[in-house]
Design a binder for these strands. Sequence first.
DNA 1: TTGAAAGCGCTAACAT
DNA 2: ATGTTAGCGCTTTCAA
Lengths: 343, 343
Amino acid sequence: MTIPPRRPLTLRDVSEASGVSEMTASRVLRGKGDVSEATRIRVLEAARAIGYVPNKIAGALASNRVNLVAVVIPSLGNMVFPEVLSGISAALEDTGLQPVVGVTDYLPDKEEKVLFEMLSWRPSGVIVAGLEHSEASRVMLARAGIPVVEIMDTDGEAIDACVGISHRRAGREMAEAILAAGYRRIGFLGTKMPLDHRARKRFEGFTRTLAKAGLEIADREFYSGGSALLKGREMTEAILARSPDLDFLYYSNDMIGAGGLMHLLSRGARIPDQIGLAGFNGVELLEGLPLRLATMDACRREIGEKAAGIIAARHADPEMEGGQRIELGPTLQYGDTLRHPRG
Amino acid sequence: MTIPPRRPLTLRDVSEASGVSEMTASRVLRGKGDVSEATRIRVLEAARAIGYVPNKIAGALASNRVNLVAVVIPSLGNMVFPEVLSGISAALEDTGLQPVVGVTDYLPDKEEKVLFEMLSWRPSGVIVAGLEHSEASRVMLARAGIPVVEIMDTDGEAIDACVGISHRRAGREMAEAILAAGYRRIGFLGTKMPLDHRARKRFEGFTRTLAKAGLEIADREFYSGGSALLKGREMTEAILARSPDLDFLYYSNDMIGAGGLMHLLSRGARIPDQIGLAGFNGVELLEGLPLRLATMDACRREIGEKAAGIIAARHADPEMEGGQRIELGPTLQYGDTLRHPRG
DNA sequence: TTGAAAGCGCTAACAT
DNA sequence: ATGTTAGCGCTTTCAA
């Protein structure tokens, strides 16, 4: 197992080893054009024997085609994005396209850098989380001349295509369900929001709906960083110490909601009657908790699939129109922590 | 905001817009070679004004340099790998290198394909999880002529460099701690292991150590797929229904261990005296549980940092020797679910 | 400090 | 079915 790391092999080496022209070897290795079965086999065997790995850089430059799709997301730690990615991978599976992931840590500047870096590899398409970008990023994307799909969110104006849910609506529907169930003293617990536009939009949709019913958020608590489950426990303890009469806690994500649930269970709270809870995302984790947390599915996998589907379709048919807009409908799950509306 | 997607701009466009040669423009944009401050500014402004994005494909072909590091991991859903990635990103931050992630789903065939695909972009290095690869993969990596770092595991023979922990030793140390604490009827719960070599090695280290003490695993339970937390609950219920006299449960990962903990808490089990539990990984999630699960830290972030450090160092100095081997020492955390040894 | 020429490894387009 | 030629956009090398 000590193979001398030699000079990288080129098509020329394959050509010499198999006795056909470079062009024919190239055709065989790409599976394009008519090649006789005999030469096909000779080339393939020669390539395998010498251990040829094609140079995609040269191939891409010559053909002006790159089978990569840039995927730009805020974070991998969030549970949410790996699921989007798996939807993307699945949809790209048989298209010859490959996702390449970049992470922005929710920072617009870093997003700009990551986009610049990725676009400089001339990918066949871009999938980027969110509708909020720096002006420079928007210009880059608009000028790139490739399909751009903004995902997760539909509340705003897209550069090109867009697939997601309306977070304002998600917040509104959750508020409606909570009000319909008769809760009135409602607390909100979430991330510090300048970072997270989607959480902010849910919050806006939520508070506006309460306002229409003549209500306000009774108390709130924010966090950033750390173990979300633990933060959920701590924040819940803190908010209830301050406002013991709350009858509902709305969390901006399921992880902190799960933490809050753990806290309330350990206190022996009567859920959902004395106090109700809801999160957001519909993460798989929730299935294992003692009570099922009320939540709203963010259609993560489906978003990934649909976004990748748009890129793939437009890659296959470059004449196709852009500007697709797909708004998915998240569904509310009452679980065991939100009373069903009376009746 | 309707920018016409034009032909991608080239260095020639920058050259024309700034009135210097392509070569000078290239030098400015790469920050290499002597350029007068005046022309530097003119070029930079011209590039920004027209919205130039360099073509890395052409650059890479011409310079025979690619600032990418291929990172090949089994899964993104596992909590573990995003942390390794964040270690890698951090260590690569100021090196000019960029990680590119590929996912294998624990399938050797897919690993082979992903490696082939990534190597065909001629990256500056490869970081790949595990020491077990198909023969073809090993040959590809050995021949690639770039630094290769195998991570997570040190029980086996590496192609080049390697950074990780000994999972056999981790299993052994956990077994020793469990025995020292006086537990004797021990159950094992884990993934179906042909898929997961590291879980298998932990299991081997664990059972061998028990064997030396004249003990065997009293019962076992395996799963694959699904919500790990829920599976942990279900498996725990199942194994205890079958073997009610178990006094310790060793889980192959923290997520199923957390599920088991939830189940036992809901049953009112006396932990850790009547029954103890331990998992593996030291995931952040555990901090939020009602009891801290005993676990063993897998040094994930540190592994990522060290592996990327090796690639970066060898990238900076191509003369440097290869074959580094770094075995990290995971530390046992007793938490609240494993008795400390008597005394 | 700047420019001109050659060529990286491959594929498109056009022979044969 | 196979081969030849030119050139993708950039950087290296050498010259001015």
